[in-house]
Simulated assay, not measured.
Amino acid sequence: MKVLIVDDELNIREGLKKMITAFCPYVSEIGDTYGVQSGLEAIKKEQPDLVLLDVELEDGTGMDLLSSLDVIDFQLVFITAHNKYAIDAFKFSAIEFLLKPIDTDNLMHALDKAKKQIGNENLAEQLQILKQSLNAIRANDKKIVLKDINSIYFVKVSDIVRCESDGQYTQFHLSDSQKILISKSLKEYEKLLEPYGFIRPHHSHLINRHKIVRFDKTNGGTLLMETNCRIPVSHRKRAHILQVLDNQQ
């Protein structure tokens, strides 16, 4: 089995190579590199069976690297020093991970399991679930700055229930029923908030999909939000919204 280590800490790479050499005799080759671009080049050149991939790299993230690949035809184990919530995201997606500082027994267990999973056709779906979970974690911590005529607001993204278009203005509706009117178009905020789980079911509405309570399919379709407001779903967006909600289950 060919293994590639992608981590921006030299001591981690060297330590992993020593442990793998000592305790994993079925590993025939071990390569290593430090970043997104060098990792992409190494994957293309070495065609590893398994990649040990750090979450945070010198020139981006492990997810950036994976997103740049057309096909992921290797098994994957993440390396992370992240907090409990990120670890829960890995567990939820059932993707193997190693927590720094790396324990020998944990490494052996992860590699042995990965060896058995080579050729796993569910990895792409698992990565999608992981990405959604990590985005949700970032949304819980992320704040957005909103400025109106009189004030500057620092709002947690997870507190935004929905945004409504009002001409060239956007009305923000928050979990505590507060409303903030901002002199920017809804389209600008759609691009900004989409990575954090926001979807646009109608040309006048951008909503936080994590705040949806129910989808009523009658009369074209409406979404009931946590604040008891109802958001229409346009005919053109209906299929996409149904797909998003199905994937959220």
Rank of each mutant, 00 (worst) to 15 (best):
D32Y: 06
D32K: 03
T33E: 05
G35E: 04
V36R: 02
V36I: 10
Q37V: 05
Q37P: 00
S38P: 00
L40K: 13
E41N: 11
A42Q: 09
I43C: 13
K44S: 14
K45Q: 08
K45D: 04
K45H: 06
E46A: 09
E46R: 09
Q47H: 12
V51S: 09
V51P: 06
L52D: 02
L53M: 01
D54S: 05
V55E: 11
V55Y: 09
E56R: 15
L57Q: 08
D59I: 03
D59G: 05
D59M: 01
G60Q: 04
T61A: 04
G62Y: 03
D64T: 00
D64A: 00
D64Y: 00
D64L: 00
L65P: 05
D70I: 11
I72E: 03
I72G: 05
D73W: 06
L76S: 10
L76W: 07
L76E: 05
F78E: 03
F78D: 04
I79K: 01
I79W: 00
I79N: 03
N83A: 10
Y85V: 15
I87P: 02
I87R: 08
I87M: 11
D88T: 09
A89I: 04
A89Q: 11
A89Y: 03
F90H: 02
F90C: 01
F90V: 00
F92H: 14
S93K: 03
A94P: 02
A94N: 14
A94R: 15
I95W: 12
I95V: 15
D103H: 08
D105V: 12
D105R: 15
N106L: 14
N106E: 15
H109L: 15
H109G: 07
H109M: 15
H109E: 14
D112H: 14
A114T: 05
A114N: 07
K116I: 05
K116C: 08
Q117T: 07
I118C: 03
N120Q: 05
N120C: 12
E121I: 02
E121W: 00
N122D: 04
L123Q: 02
L127V: 05
Q128E: 15
S133K: 11
S133Q: 13
L134W: 03
N135M: 12
I137E: 12
I137M: 11
R138H: 10
A139I: 08
